[in-house]
Design a binder for these strands. Structure first.
Lengths: 250, 250
DNA sequence: TTATCATAAATTGTTAACAATAGTTGCTAA
DNA sequence: TTAGCAACTATTGTTAACAATTTATGATAA
């Protein structure tokens, strides 16, 4: 008897996607899965069975299928014909591409955002840094990842470009998957200090400094990747030992 | 009696999407619609009826629906609940965002591609420039747009980054819609001379020059936009012509 | 004529049943 | 034991019918 797929508490947190989405039943599925991936509750390779999802969300399979098509369009989910949908497992090449793209996008965002932040933005970001630190101390990985992602996305919102915002949203999602597979230190989140300096530069309106800090920040993240070691195999693990929690060496 | 939606020869040309796509029946629909939009055979605001499409492609509505969800995820199609799918009508703000994003992405592509082009790439690009000129002389707008798009996409392929490649693919599509709505001169394609100089810089491996030329090339494109004039298009036509007061009651 | 409202038609949204495929299990034979 | 094969199960893919909603049509009254 096959134990049901993992997908433990996927419904937990709503997402804050702002990109012109109506509240179709389909979008709830998309956002919940995205949020679960962003917090590493769904590791790379996890199978997303249609029946499982439609049971979980109390909707029909047609909507699940549409949701999976949407996720596949963002390269967050892989669709294998006649096999089903799986959380994407990024390759090393893919990781390189994602981070190169992230640098391109976040540099532009950084320059556009510099000096445009309201006092509320600044307050949010400083608060966010504290929350991330607390989550890290409490070994609360999902909260830490969520905070880190919120930080970057908030700056994107200051830059006021919906296209870049959406691209970055996709890329941070895929970054999370990449870090989950290849990160050396498990410190997949960002150095506290770097975030703080970015906020300072943002507040001062020092766009050159913003760009430089953002760029080096992302390079630090990327430098922590190790492609030689075996990728933490969520894929096979999950298929073979479905009861096992995603082992994160703290 | 409502005449059937336009969609005359949507099936015409296959698309060259390279991003790990299986040949599901759904993808044929997606690629055909993308290609039709890229050549302005489908103007902004066109309604994409499900029955119409499933008739056209000889498949069931479920696949059409999935295809439309995929297109909506790329912001090329707009899904209005209970109303149907429409080719996206970009707003001026959206146009600004798209071009800012394009500059960010194509600058990065330009720098990465410089000096990496094979002799075959160079040959392709020079041939492409000739074809675009011919198409322009022959007043063959679809061919001209296709050539122009192929030019930019080929350079993206030289840069060898699938993420940037896909982003640019989406952005060129949306650019085509934008130019169709707001371009002043209708010369929505690129200046022949600028393309030629870009190829020269690419061949020489002069990355700084590549970036500079690409950037100014895109700024020229954007400078041709005119948001004050009425956007030409079926869009407003479509919205206002069959207008009706919201007197629906329960 | 024009505005309003009821009716009809067409389209989108939902559901369930069926078909096809992949993956698993268990059996048989060397 | 183990390789190979066959039946079985679970899952994905497809289709058609039905429900809900929007849009179009036409009639009625001021």
């Amino acid at each position: 008897m096959q134990t049901r797929a993992p997908l433990p508490n996927v419904l937990q947190r709503k997402f804050y996607f702002q990109s012109a989405m109506q509240s179709l039943p389909e979008n709830e599925i998309v956002e919940s899965i995205l949020s679960a991936i962003a917090e590493q509750r769904l590791p790379a390779g996890t199978k997303l069975g249609e029946q499982t999802l439609s049971d979980l969300f109390g909707c029909n399979r047609a909507n699940v299928r549409r949701a999976l098509a949407t996720l596949a369009a963002q390269h967050v989910v892989e669709l294998r014909p006649n096999r089903g949908a799986f959380v994407m497992t990024p390759s090393p090449k893919e990781a390189r591409d994602v981070f190169q793209a992230r640098r391109a996008i976040e540099r532009t965002i950084a320059r556009a955002a510099a000096g445009q932040a309201s006092s509320e933005d600044i307050r949010f970001l400083r608060q966010n840094i504290r929350e991330e630190a607390e989550a890290r101390d409490a070994r609360d990985k999902p909260a830490e990842l969520r905070a880190s992602r919120d930080f970057h996305m908030r700056i994107a919102q200051v830059a006021d470009n919906e296209v870049l915002d959406r691209f970055l949203s996709e890329l941070t999602m895929r970054s999370t998957l990449i870090l989950g597979l290849y990160a050396r230190h498990g410190t997949s989140s960002c150095a506290e200090d770097e975030h703080a300096r970015i906020v300072d530069a943002l507040e001062r309106g020092d766009s050159d400094e913003m760009v430089a800090l953002t760029d080096s920040h992302l390079r630090h993240l990327e430098a922590d990747l190790d492609f030689d070691a075996q990728p933490r195999a969520a894929t096979l693990q999950d298929q073979l030992a479905p009861r096992r929690a995603p082992s994160q060496n703290a």
